[in-house]
């Protein structure tokens, strides 16, 4: 029957000739192939010391941003927590007191902001949901750890380092 795709190929099974049955020329060929790899440069990237270059839109660890004056942008609106499909984000809001204007941009801020890195799927929806441009997934790969509780990152790990005064 004519095949529809026209990709059918009839294969012939030929008996092996003497040298193929002797197996030794094939071994020599195989050995020369492996030997040619012996002197090649290894392709290994020694991970913690060396890092592969990330792509432009790589989504890594989250960071909570500050504005030009070094104030935290987050206003604890909760949209990121709402948008999170993995429910990894929790926060507690607090009101800004007098004299804290240099710390927080809006009148309300996140007193506690926690992301469970074991739940996070790095989809980037929090980043898209944020109306204040306060959260970005522009960090590195989240490092490994021994205990589950150590994967719940608080503000100490998430908030960007303050501007140099």
């Amino acid at each position: 029957m004519e095949s529809l795709s026209n990709k059918k190929k009839q294969l012939e099974i030929k008996p092996l000739n003497f040298w193929e049955r002797a197996y030794l020329p094939a071994i020599a060929k195989g050995l020369s192939i492996t030997m040619s790899h012996f002197f090649k440069k290894p392709v290994t990237i020694k991970y913690p010391e060396e890092k592969r270059e990330f792509s432009e839109n790589f989504r890594g660890m989250h960071s909570l941003k500050r504005d030009e004056q070094g104030r935290e942008r987050c206003t604890a609106c909760g949209l990121c927590a709402l948008s999170c499909p993995a429910e990894a984000i929790t926060m507690t809001a607090a009101e800004r007191q007098k004299g804290e204007e240099h710390l927080y941009r809006e009148e309300k801020y996140a007193a506690v902001y926690e992301i469970n890195m074991l739940r996070c799927i790095f989809c980037g929806l929090c980043e898209e949901a944020c109306p204040k441009e306060a959260i970005y997934l522009d960090g590195d790969i989240v490092p490994s750890d021994y205990l589950r509780k150590d994967f719940i990152y608080g503000k100490d790990k998430l908030v960007e380092a303050p501007l140099n005064q």
């Binding site: 492996t34 790899h37 012996f38 002197f39 090649k40 440069k41 290894p42 392709v43 290994t44 020694k46």
Partner: peptide, 13 residues
Amino acid sequence: KIAAFFQDRVGPN
């Protein structure tokens, strides 16, 4: 080590 070199790796280091 030799297995690693044959497979373009670095082996135990």
